[in-house]
Design a protein around this nucleic acid. Structure first.
Length: 421
DNA sequence: TCTGGGGTCCTAGGACCC
DNA sequence: TCTGGGGTCCTAGGACCC
């Protein structure tokens, strides 16, 4: 048996943990730079605030309807997410964190009243963290997703927990689930499926559609059919596995044209990538820089994506090596006079540090490693990126727009919650 | 006239997820 | 004026190996 545990309106719920007076009140959370809406409480959904709406377009509406607005507070959400995962691990060691607010659990060989067990999971997280969750149980990962959705859609009947454990319940659930709500069917595949008369998850599992699904989705589609039919082919991913790529990308607060300004950003992103690599004890072989310019021509705003990749002669996690590769790539991409709205650095071809192959002719200066160790140790102490490269501007501090930021209640002693008696 | 069979690695691009 | 950010998997085709 698998379970999928999913936190309800996670970011909004996190904000409520430390401001309980907001219970029952509409809340929305904005993306970085307060750009657009990325999380809504149920009350805000009912008031018709759309997901993904740009803040400036709904600003008036938010105000008129008395909706509470928050900037993203990732230190808070990340910390509460870790606490949720810890609680889940108290029920079974077989937990795969699937995203910041969601995890699969596996209960192979365990026979119990899963509905009661789900209620127990839900109430423990509610009691210990004040975070509401829904739990879906089924014999495959894909079906547990479906079960979770049912738990969420019918709170009165399910109390937030639904178990698919009979053939009858499985068929009923699949006939209810729209094809676009199936895990793995996105925007494009939805259209293809509907064109073929596959409107519900149930249609997707019918034998006469198998060939078509194989044609458009390949083995991924066949696996999904089996999963929905109740045959488990997906297993828990190893939660300790290292990342295979690491990306740092940001919109700029305003359009940039100056090479040095963009270089400063790209070099900083590269430094962060290198730090993350070192944190997971790995090195990368490839560095990618991406640059986006917004074209405002012909009353149409189009984003133009550009990227370049460099394969390093040797795998590295040195800030110096990765940053200089990133700057070389930026030089290839940059065009004078253009206005850029976003940049990013991605490192790929990640391997464990101790599996590094040495290059016959070129290798990194061994001093890099020492230097990185000193930098990391110092940063661990002072907690910030105090040591930077010369191509990073020490004066210029890039502050995100965060006009509605709550406190880092759980990760910073200076912002800890005070209770007045 | 006629030229096998079996494999690996890498990359770009397309699809998806939250 | 103003529209996050960070990931995964699969496939086809090219280049190469014996």
């Amino acid at each position: 048996m698998y379970a999928l545990v999913d936190c309800n309106n996670f970011y909004a719920s996190c904000e409520r943990v430390f401001q309980p007076k907001l219970a029952g009140k509409p809340i929305v959370i904005l993306s970085n730079n307060d750009g657009c809406i990325i999380s809504r409480s149920d009350e805000a959904k009912l008031l018709g605030i759309p997901m993904g709406a740009p803040e400036f377009k709904v600003r008036k509406e938010l105000k008129e309807k008395g909706i509470h607005v928050f900037s993203s507070n990732y230190p808070l959400y990340g910390d509460l997410s870790n606490r949720v995962m810890k609680i889940l691990e108290g029920f079974t060691p077989h937990v795969e964190q699937y995203s910041i607010d969601e995890a699969f659990m596996n209960f192979d060989g365990i026979d119990t009243d899963f509905n009661a067990y789900g209620i127990q999971i839900k109430s423990r997280i509610q009691k210990w963290l004040s975070i509401p969750v829904c739990v879906g149980f089924a014999e495959t990962k894909a079906l547990s997703k479906v079960a979770n959705k049912i738990a969420r859609k019918f709170p009165e009947q399910t109390k937030g927990v639904h178990v698919i454990d009979t053939e009858e319940k499985r068929i009923k659930a699949l006939k209810w689930t729209k094809i676009e709500d199936v895990w793995g069917i996105g925007f494009r595949l939805k259209k293809k499926m509907k064109a073929k008369g596959i409107n519900f998850a149930y249609d997707f599992t019918l034998p006469q559609n198998e060939n078509y699904i194989k044609m458009v989705m390949g083995v991924t589609g066949l696996r999904l059919i089996k999963e929905l039919q109740g045959e488990s082919v997906l297993t828990l991913d190893n939660p300790d596995a290292d990342k295979k790529s690491i990306a740092i990308t940001r919109m700029f607060k305003y359009k940039l044209t100056d090479f040095d300004e963009i270089k400063e950003r790209v070099s900083t992103f590269a430094s962060v990538c290198a730090e993350k690599l070192r944190k997971q004890n790995s090195c990368c072989h490839g560095v990618i820089v991406l640059l986006i310019k917004t074209d405002n021509g012909e009353n149409k705003r189009t984003r133009l994506y550009f990227n370049e990749m460099e394969t390093l002669a040797f795998a590295s996690n040195s800030t110096l090596t990765i940053s200089s590769a990133a700057v070389r790539l930026l030089k290839k991409l940059y065009e004078k006079g253009e206005r850029y709205s976003k940049a990013g650095v991605i490192v790929t071809g990640i391997i464990p540090e101790n599996q590094k192959q040495f290059h016959l002719f070129e290798d990194e200066n061994p001093k890099h490693q020492k230097l990185m160790e000193v930098m990391d140790a110092y940063h661990k102490k002072v907690g910030e990126r105090k040591i930077r490269l010369g191509n990073q501007d020490l004066q210029h501090t890039w502050k995100m727009r965060q006009d509605h930021l709550s406190k880092k209640y759980t990760t910073d002693f200076n912002e800890i919650l005070e209770i007045k008696c």
